[in-house]
């Protein structure tokens, strides 16, 4: 087990280094990219479209609210984008070394943890500077992080094997992510969604996850119902993802 940790650590280090080798910002690109998008969303939705959260009129509060939601979304997006190609990229190691294949899908999950850590850390700092930080926020946020990780694992394992057979998957993911972002209450609050559409939104698990993040981080409350429901769903997804991975792994070797 200790050996697997050492191996995973080496792989993760290489994975991150490889992506940012030679860049000026290095690992901080992991943060710079989401921050830039945050700025764009805050400007477009907060300033131009004048999206408001209940009574608050402050753009700063809107930005913090956005960042809490985007932290979860960006981390998931990182996994969904990378997972379909993770086995293809590490083909060499997979076929020519005694590497346990189940470690590879953990790489995008590990990277997403870094993305989220940086992002939530920044939010926490921002809130503290503003004097709005809730003492229990981080503790209450951790169970939702766990949920996010479970969903990430499910997609990482499932997409990793499917991506080998269906090479188009890699191209499909980015547009799907854009759709997912726009149909979820991430860059706008549920309150501005018309009544007739709210029924549809109730089916979106991402909406509950993002809500859980926000309530924990910004208000210091814990959404029990959302957590319980998502835990059941996430566990089922992990089981499915792992099952797919186990059943398709042997076939992956034939076509890699």
């Amino acid at each position: 087990m200790a050996a697997h940790w050492a191996l995973l650590w080496q792989l993760l280090r290489h994975d991150v280094q490889e992506r940012y080798v030679g860049t000026v910002l290095g690992v901080f690109w992991l943060l710079a990219q989401p921050l830039f998008m945050l700025l764009v969303y805050a400007l477009v939705f907060g300033e131009i479209l004048q999206v408001r959260l209940g009574t608050s009129t402050e753009t700063g509060a809107f930005a913090a609210w956005l960042l809490a939601g985007l932290s979860a979304f960006n981390a998931l997006a990182e996994v969904l984008t990378r997972a379909p190609s993770v086995l293809i990229e590490r083909r060499e190691l997979l076929l020519n070394s005694p590497l346990p294949p189940a470690l590879l899908p953990l790489l995008p999950v590990g990277a997403s943890l870094i993305v989220e850590g940086l992002s939530v850390g920044l939010l926490w700092l921002w809130l503290c500077v503003q004097g709005q930080c809730q003492p229990l926020a981080i503790v209450l946020y951790l169970p939702f992080l766990l949920l996010r990780l479970l969903f990430s694992l499910a997609f990482a394992y499932g997409l990793a094997v499917l991506g080998v057979f269906l090479r188009d998957l890699r191209q499909l993911i980015p547009p799907l992510l854009t759709v997912l972002l726009l149909v979820s209450p991430i860059v706008y609050p549920m309150s501005i969604v018309p009544e007739s559409f709210q029924g549809w939104f109730a089916w979106n698990p991402l909406a509950y996850l993002v809500e859980g993040y926000r309530v924990a981080l910004l208000e210091g409350r814990f959404l029990w119902e959302a957590f319980a429901g998502l835990l059941v769903l996430a566990s089922a997804c992990v089981a499915l993802g792992w099952w797919l991975f186990q059943h398709l792994l042997l076939r992956v070797r034939y076509v890699l």
Partner: peptide, 30 residues
């Protein structure tokens, strides 16, 4: 195992990094 030449190596990484990875792949801890 020492198999076909160069397989399992990461060309972009240094010899030291590859040695670390190689040792980790053979089940060594930190």
């Amino acid at each position: 195992a020492l198999l076909e030449l160069g397989t399992g190596l990461q060309p972009a990484f240094s010899g030291v990094e590859n040695a670390r990875l190689g040792l980790a792949l053979r089940g060594l801890s930190h």
